[in-house]
Amino acid sequence: MLPGSYRAAGLVDDTALVRAMLDVEVAWARVLGTPVSLGSWTPVLDPAEVEAAGNPVLPLVSAVRSQVSGSVHTGLTSQDVLDTALMLLARDVLSRVSADLARVGAALARLADEHRSSVMAGRTLTQFAVPITFGLKAARWLVGVLDSLDELDAVSRNLPVQCGGAAGTLSRAASVVDPLAAAAAFAEHLGLVWPGMPWHTYRAPVTRLGDALVRTCDALGVMAADVLTLGRPEIGEVREGAVAGRGGSSTMPHKRNPVLSVLVNSAALQAPQFGAQLHLCSARAVDERPDGAWHAEWPALRGLMELAVVAASQAAELTEGLEVHADVMARRAAGAAEDLLAERGGGTDPAAYLGMAESFVDEVLRRNRSRFRPLRGEHEVPTPIVSEGSDRNGD
């Protein structure tokens, strides 16, 4: 069980997938002229039938046909339904991850602004380097989050419908409808994009999605790893916020383990393997329908989506409750001044040698304001996000 999996409940589990496939079949039936209204009905698929078919679509189609009179599934193939259903799940996943990244971004922007002058020791290759500020460190974390949001937005806007029929020619659909018009209408019904042709063996839509999620976990992983290092008791510069019942030990009851940081770090270590699996499957998408590569893709994609949802939610909670001990940072920097200021030929005040740290913080906060409303206490005059008179709230 993935620790924190409850945070992704209902997004990528079997029930969610069946419901998404059902939405796909209903949308296509309507394109074919069959009015379908199934309400909240969701079939329970027999695992033996799923195994016998090699995928869950055939049992689903049989269940739908038992409920509906008229054309159902005509012109589609199993891959059309399952690929499109996974894109519907991805849309919800991307929305959830982006919402939690927005929380992370807001928390990091606050920390960057509050600690723009909080001097700390810079470290390279585990050793003291030159002085930085914690505000600069938080701003660097924020850049990763903002980049991830940009990528997730781009992927979300271009999630494609799959519509190709048995071998990607829409040959059966052509006997009952105008196939290209039907594919475009199919996409419109589902709120997806018709890319102009099927992508049965061109898996870039999946690898692009996977890459964006992996890079999101990368960005969160850097932050979590830094928090774990700076939170070691012999360093003590940051600490996870205290939450009753979290971080306990089965053998050492006095401990308060940094559980959220550990789990986000764990997600960052797992995500690249899911991404690599998707690329491996993409490279083996042979013929007009792969003999196993497509099948190996589903669990990797669903696993990666669940991992990213959970990690983003945990990271939001982590950053919103992070305790920053600026006094400890300042004392350590002062005590290590000889090492920290060696580049400048020595000195006694690390705060006098911060270079462009504050300017870099300002630049990241300016970028942040293009997505989020300005934070109170920022040093610059806030730039409005919406035009005067608009009633939008920065969504």
Rank of each mutant, 00 (worst) to 15 (best):
residue 145 V to A: 15
residue 344 R to F: 07
residue 35 P to W: 04
residue 272 P to R: 11
residue 309 V to R: 03
residue 279 H to A: 06
residue 85 A to G: 09
residue 198 P to N: 08
residue 306 E to D: 13
residue 248 G to I: 10
residue 301 L to N: 02
residue 180 L to R: 03
residue 321 G to H: 08
residue 5 S to D: 10
residue 18 V to E: 00
residue 338 E to T: 13
residue 309 V to C: 14
residue 158 N to T: 10
residue 350 P to E: 08
residue 29 A to D: 05
residue 238 V to E: 00
residue 351 A to M: 14
residue 28 W to C: 00
residue 141 W to A: 09
residue 55 N to W: 12
residue 331 R to C: 03
residue 264 V to L: 12
residue 293 A to V: 00
residue 74 T to Q: 04
residue 155 V to E: 05
residue 371 R to L: 04
residue 368 N to V: 08
residue 64 V to E: 01
residue 235 I to E: 13
residue 114 E to V: 13
residue 285 A to P: 10
residue 163 C to P: 05
residue 265 N to M: 11
residue 168 G to N: 14
residue 124 T to P: 05
residue 67 Q to G: 06
residue 136 L to K: 05
residue 189 H to M: 07
residue 243 V to I: 14
residue 43 P to W: 00
residue 231 G to E: 12
residue 370 S to V: 03
residue 43 P to H: 00
residue 222 V to H: 15
residue 164 G to S: 08
residue 225 A to H: 14
residue 65 R to N: 13
residue 339 D to K: 13
residue 133 T to E: 03
residue 78 S to R: 13
residue 131 P to Y: 01
residue 258 P to L: 09
residue 270 Q to M: 15
residue 380 E to P: 05
residue 14 D to F: 11
residue 293 A to H: 05
residue 388 E to N: 04
residue 130 V to D: 01
residue 9 A to V: 08
residue 83 D to W: 12
residue 228 L to Q: 11
residue 104 V to G: 05
residue 392 R to Q: 07
residue 81 V to I: 13
residue 209 L to G: 09
residue 294 W to A: 13
residue 108 L to C: 09
residue 297 E to P: 03
residue 237 E to M: 08
residue 88 L to V: 06
residue 385 I to M: 11
residue 303 G to R: 03
residue 236 G to A: 15
residue 230 L to C: 06
residue 83 D to I: 01
residue 292 G to V: 02
residue 271 A to V: 11
residue 282 S to D: 10
residue 113 D to Q: 12
residue 226 D to Y: 09
residue 201 T to C: 11
residue 174 A to Q: 08
residue 115 H to Y: 13
residue 17 L to M: 08
residue 200 H to F: 10
residue 219 A to R: 15
residue 25 E to W: 04
residue 33 G to M: 06
residue 108 L to P: 11
residue 126 T to P: 00
residue 89 L to S: 04
residue 279 H to N: 13
residue 163 C to G: 00
residue 214 V to P: 09
residue 158 N to L: 09
residue 321 G to C: 05
residue 303 G to C: 00
residue 112 A to D: 02
residue 203 R to K: 14
residue 369 R to Q: 15
residue 273 Q to F: 09
residue 234 E to Q: 10
residue 158 N to C: 04
residue 22 L to Y: 01
residue 179 P to V: 05
residue 354 L to Q: 07
residue 53 A to H: 11
residue 35 P to S: 11
residue 126 T to M: 12
